[in-house]
Nucleic acid binder design. Structure first.
Lengths: 147, 147
DNA sequence: TCTCTTGCTGCAACGAGTCGCAGGTGGGTG
DNA sequence: CACCCACCTGCGACTCGTTGCAGCAAGAGA
């Protein structure tokens, strides 16, 4: 387990949320998974920790974690699927390979210049701080060089 | 109606798809909506044109249009919702305001430099050609300047 | 125009995610 | 430590999107 539970408890309290065994189970499940995880996997892991936990509770808990800033959401492979990720120290985005499914981190610095330019040009203040770019990774490009 | 139906029919044939009343209804629904539309709205508009059309047929038709290159998909507001858009002449991305829901087009040129930099830096070949950035539009920033 | 084949449609059933409700529980107060 | 209330949980029902299947129709060929 890489997270400091006390810290999370304080954060939940600070946002006016109660700390319940179910929420801790979801939190542990999310941490244990590491990186991007589907809600289905979170559900399975949470059930392993507490067999009686309900689907709807897991979804609501994930929502609470996101609202508290403890977790991030990102669109999944099959449009219509949400993935979750425990927050980390350094903000970052993701590159996902559409062939092999591998994910690579993309430093926020790389996107920063682009974001600032868009904000300047269009007057928007960008809040979507978790971008997922789709593409083909270097490895897969090698394997299908013929195409 | 802004689309040239004959053109669409040829494109569907060229991709080996049949042209059916249901598919034309979905196509008309998508064109009538203009811009990004939720699948729920496409379904409603298609039903207005053909009351007997089935949900599954609408989803399958949208899939056919996307595979034919006649429509584009983009992630929706609530992660886990797909939005559809009829293709246009000039490729572009979108800025969406998380407060009022308004959408603005973002020229592909703006993102081009960022995409090329990421490709150079990480070796990826980016294929996700339809980006949606979340933020707060200038209007909404004015109205909530106090916050 | 008629026939025939293949792909399309509507239906029904299913899984994922959401919501309203009644009862349970966290945690603040005395 | 006990009480109490607001929030949370589990349950059940619902919606949205997907899939398998049997029958139908687009459109190619004669």
């Amino acid at each position: 387990m890489t997270h400091n539970r006390l810290n999370y408890i304080e954060i939940l309290h600070a946002h006016g949320y109660r700390v319940t065994p179910q929420r801790l189970a979801v939190l542990d499940a999310l941490c244990a998974a590491g990186g991007h995880t589907t809600s289905a996997e979170v559900l399975a892991r949470a059930r392993a920790l507490d067999a009686r936990i309900d689907r709807s509770t897991v979804y609501r808990s994930l929502d609470v974690l996101v609202k508290s800033g403890l977790a991030l959401t990102a669109p999944g492979d099959n449009a219509g699927e949400t993935r979750y990720e425990i927050v980390q120290e350094s903000p970052h985005h993701h590159l996902r390979c559409s062939r092999c499914g591998t994910e690579h981190e993309l430093s926020a610095a790389s996107a920063g210049a682009f974001f600032r330019q868009v904000e300047r040009e269009y007057g928007y203040r960008l809040t979507g701080d978790h971008l997922v770019l789709e593409g083909v990774c270097p490895e897969c490009q090698k394997h299908t060089a013929g195409h």
